[in-house]
Amino acid sequence: MSPEAAGPPVSELVRTAGSHVTELGGRLVHLWVVPGAGTPVLLLPGCAVPSYAFRPVETALPGRWMVALDRPGMLDTPWPGRLPTLAEEVATLLALCEAVGTPPVVVAHSMAGPHAEALAREHPGAVSGLVLLDASIEVDAQRPSAAFDRAWLAASKLALEGSRLPPFAVAAALSTRVAVWSQSQRLRINYSRPPGTEELFRRPDTLASLVAEQAAYGDQLADLEDLLETTTWPSTPGVVLTAGRRPGWVRKQRVLAHRTGARHVVVDDSRHLMMVDRPDAVAEAVVSLLPEPERQTDVV
Rank of each mutant, 00 (worst) to 15 (best):
A118G: 09
V106G: 01
D76M: 12
M74Q: 11
C97D: 14
P80W: 04
G101M: 14
R71N: 06
A99G: 14
P72R: 10
A116Y: 00
R82E: 14
E117A: 04
P114H: 07
A112C: 09
V100S: 05
D76T: 06
V106T: 05
P78H: 13
A116Q: 00
A112R: 00
E88S: 08
A108W: 00
T92W: 01
E98L: 14
E117F: 00
V105D: 00
G81W: 11
H115P: 01
A87S: 10
V90R: 01
E89A: 13
G81I: 11
A87R: 10
G101F: 14
V90Q: 01
P78W: 06
A118V: 09
D70Q: 04
A112I: 05
P78G: 11
E117C: 08
M74F: 14
H109I: 02
D76Q: 15
P104I: 07
A99K: 15
S110K: 02
D76K: 13
V90W: 00
T92A: 10
L93S: 02
L83I: 11
T85A: 15
P80I: 05
A95D: 15
P84G: 07
P84D: 04
T102P: 01
E98T: 14
P78V: 12
P72W: 10
G113Y: 05
L94I: 01
T77V: 08
